[in-house]
């Protein structure tokens, strides 16, 4: 992700997803591998799709899962880093206000 100035991410081109057995499964366009999102990963994914900023995602997860802010911040930041490294999401350029 490159730094803490990234406030919003979106799925990379070709990173499409399906819900299989109540589980969000994302296809990596890089190597045609599949990744199942665990824990509240599916909820984070749906918030990413809605164009929610990372601070808002953290707030939402804290409220919905009754998790402490520090823990949620750490986990969600790591999770988004991981999704970015796997080329499943990418930072939204600052000039783009709307997610496609």
């Amino acid at each position: 992700m490159g730094g803490s100035n990234i406030i919003k991410v979106r799925p990379c081109e070709g990173a499409v997803w399906r819900v299989i057995d109540d589980e969000v499964v994302v296809l990596s366009p890089e190597d045609v591998s599949i990744h199942a999102l665990t824990g509240c990963g599916d909820r984070v994914w749906s918030l990413i799709l809605q164009g929610t900023t990372i601070p808002e995602i953290i707030q939402t997860i804290c409220a919905e899962y009754e998790v402490e802010t520090a823990m949620a911040t750490k986990d969600i930041t790591e999770f988004i880093h991981k999704l970015t490294a796997m080329k499943l999401v990418e930072p939204v350029p600052a000039c783009e206000g709307v997610l496609s």
Partner: peptide, 12 residues
Amino acid sequence: MVTGTRATRNYA
């Protein structure tokens, strides 16, 4: 751990 990509259930 709140989130993850490691498969712990179902399909994967």
